[in-house]
Structures are given as structure tokens and as C-alpha cells.
């Protein structure tokens, strides 16, 4: 399931419609954002069977949708870039909240040992530092949140919102090469943050 081709153009079209007062356009934007949130939540929950049992992703989506709608009701997005920033921030906050809720010191997950260990060992040959506990995921999202704006923006567009690099370049008004550079720098920075989190 790839992103629909020409999503950015579609988005600009929706934004124009919002600005001319079309209520439906807002819903379409929310749907897109929810679809991203749904995928990312699944990715985060995938390696945590105990959480997958408890947390219906749809519930999180529902919350995110209401929150996002509140934001959109209050703010009329002026540009696709501004909208994406808002949406990605919402997604990230939802994911952090969820991870904290189930993993954090006060989270119920911490007290449920009957379901066995939350951490599943990486498969053989899987050398990546992909977060696999909710604690790791929280650290990851927080590390993104703390990044310099230029890098955060590129992570927002490419990873949280799932845009292509050319789409992100258009959106940010920079060259494709700049997007590639920032994306590379962002991943290197996150890599070092994640290993610090894990091994310290």
C-alpha cells in the first residue's frame, strides 16, 4: 500500500478548499493523518505482544483524530508545510503518550508480568537498532522532538508523514539534495542518540 501518487497536490487542493470554507476537506486531511498514525502505531506495537493485546490501535486513532480536529478547528492551516508540522507533532505526541502509558513507571504494563517479557530478542542477523521496547520507542520519539528544526522537519515529512523525498523538497521549498543531506544527518544523529539510550 503505497502513498497515493500526487498526494501533495491533493493536499494543496484540500487546503484550498478548507480556506474557501469546505468542511469535508478537513476530514480528508484527518483521514490521511490517521492512516499514517495507524501504520506507525502498528509498527511500534508490533514487537510488543502484550501491548498489542491491550491497546487497540483504533482507540489511539480515535483520540488522535479528536485532538487533531481540535487543533484544526482552532487553526486554519496556511500552508501544507504548516499542516504537516502540526499533524506530525500530534502523531508523535500520541505515540509518546501511548508508549508511556503502557511502559512507563506508572503504566499498567510495568505491573503485568504474567504476560512474559515485553522485549523480544531480535531475529538472527537483525543488527539494526530499531527500537523494540516501548521504552526505546519513547526515547526515539523524544529524540526526534528535541532535534534542530531543519532535521525534525525532514523526519516529520519523510518518516511520520510518509512523503517521498521529492514531495518533501517541494513542500520545504529546498532542493532534493538538501533534503537528502538533512535526512542523512538526522538519521546519523538519531543513531547515536538511540545507542546512548540503550547502552548507558
Amino acid at each position: 500500500m503505497n502513498e497515493p501518487v500526487g498526494h501533495t497536490t491533493q493536499l494543496q487542493h484540500w487546503l484550498n478548499r478548507i480556506q474557501s470554507g469546505h468542511a469535508d476537506a478537513k476530514n480528508e486531511i484527518i483521514e490521511h493523518t490517521c492512516e499514517r498514525l495507524r501504520r506507525l502505531t502498528h509498527q511500534m506495537m508490533l514487537r510488543n505482544p502484550r501491548v498489542r493485546r491491550w491497546a487497540e490501535t483504533d482507540d489511539v486513532l480515535q483520540n488522535a483524530m479528536i485532538r487533531l480536529h481540535r487543533s484544526l478547528a482552532a487553526v486554519q492551516p496556511e500552508s501544507p508545510q504548516q499542516f504537516y508540522g502540526l499533524a506530525a507533532t500530534q502523531i508523535r505526541r500520541e505515540l509518546i503518550d501511548l508508549a508511556r502509558h503502557y511502559y512507563g513507571a506508572e503504566g499498567q504494563g510495568a505491573n503485568h508480568h504474567t504476560d512474559g517479557e515485553g522485549r523480544i530478542l531480535p531475529e538472527h542477523g537483525d543488527a539494526s537498532v530499531k527500537p523494540d521496547t516501548l521504552d526505546d520507542w519513547t526515547a526515539f520519539h523524544e529524540a526526534v522532538e528535541a532535534m534542530p528544526d531543519e532535521q525534525k522537519q525532514v523526519v516529520d515529512l519523510l518518516w511520520y508523514e510518509g512523503l517521498t523525498q521529492p514531495e518533501a523538497a517541494t513542500m520545504m521549498g529546498v532542493s532534493l539534495k538538501t533534503v537528502k543531506r538533512r535526512w542523512q544527518a538526522a538519521r546519523l544523529a538519531l543513531r547515536s542518540q538511540l545507542s546512548e539510550h540503550r547502552f548507558v
Partner: peptide, 17 residues
């Protein structure tokens, strides 16, 4: 390091898995 972070670039990681 970039190889370690390849999970951020693989397409449709979530739905495939």
C-alpha cells in the same frame, strides 16, 4: 550507522511486517 537506521527508510515497513 545508516545501515542500522535502514528501518526508517524501508518502504511500508509496518504493513509488511
Amino acid at each position: 550507522s545508516l545501515k542500522d537506521m535502514a528501518w526508517m527508510t524501508s518502504k511500508d515497513d509496518s504493513s509488511q511486517q
